[in-house]
Write a protein that binds this DNA or RNA. Structure first.
Length: 261
DNA sequence: ATGGTTGCTTAGCAA
């Protein structure tokens, strides 16, 4: 068996890859991740900035975009030997929310879980349905022995540690019991790499653009890098790049990072 | 409290 290569994996809800192109190239230069999972591209594949990635030594062979909404991609320094598109050919594939790629013997997914808008509404039901289906996909597609990283915007804060004001958010969208149960179904035996290394709460990955969300640190931790047990054992460092949320024209999400030996 | 901001597309939706 070949010895595993160290991997630095990042995940970022970029909130329009073209509106954020300068920040994206700066991020790749600053962090030089081996793999970067992107969500909310808000463009079709034909408008994805492949050339800008190539100029920095990255390929983005795995892109699943739709116009205006959603869209996920995997950007990497390494060759991609296989691509998987969960739900392909089914109604759930209508929205571009999940893609996987086999890179350096690790299966990496970029996922964008539906927001759900408000507890109990139609979009909320779709969110739960999507999460249930994706959890089922992971279980059927991978054995517990596989090295798998499932990165993305889950649109669920796993526990009250991940919420700036748990009382205000109690049973609200992104924090409801139903969503947390659905998240647990996806997580299964995988590990939340950041939480494993940071026991304390108060570190967030998303802040609303409105109402001084970031300056007042009114955030949630909803962007996660989940790792299957064999991969999680190789994890040595995790981080939220809070600085990326600063300055002019940021995404409303900060990138997250996990390093594996 | 039903506001507030951003992006895509061009008035309204989604987040």
């Amino acid at each position: 068996m070949p010895s595993p290569s160290p991997l630095k994996i990042m995940s970022w809800n970029v909130n329009s890859v073209n509106a954020r192109l300068e920040r994206l190239t700066a991020l790749l230069t600053r962090h030089t991740p081996d793999i970067l999972c992107l969500q909310e591209l808000k463009c079709e594949e034909s408008r994805f900035p492949f050339e800008s990635m190539k100029a920095l030594g990255y390929t983005a062979a795995a892109v699943s975009g739709q116009k205006t909404y959603n869209g996920v991609a995997i950007v990497t320094k390494y060759p991609i030997s296989e691509i998987r598109r969960p739900f392909q050919g089914t109604e759930l594939a209508t929205q571009a929310r999940a893609i996987g790629a086999f890179i350096q013997s690790v299966w990496v997914y970029s996922v964008y879980v539906p927001n759900g808008q408000e507890v109990g509404c139609e979009k909320f039901a779709y969110k739960l349905q999507w999460m249930h289906a994706f959890g089922g996909y992971l279980k059927s597609a991978h054995s517990p022995k596989d090295e798998v990283a499932v990165c993305g915007d889950y649109n669920v804060a796993p526990t009250s540690l991940d919420v700036h004001a748990p009382d205000l958010w109690n049973e609200k969208i992104l924090c409801s019991t139903e969503e947390r149960n659905a998240l647990a179904h996806i997580v299964g035996d995988y590990e939340d790499t950041f939480r494993k290394q940071h026991a304390d709460g108060g570190q967030f990955t998303w802040w609303d653009y409105r109402d001084l969300g970031f300056p007042l640190n009114k955030g949630l931790r909803i962007d996660l890098i989940l790792a299957s047990r064999p991969l999680a054992e190789r994890c040595r460092r995790t981080e939220i790049d809070r600085n990326e949320r600063k300055g002019s024209k940021p995404s409303d999400h900060a990138p997250v990072l996990a390093e594996f030996v």
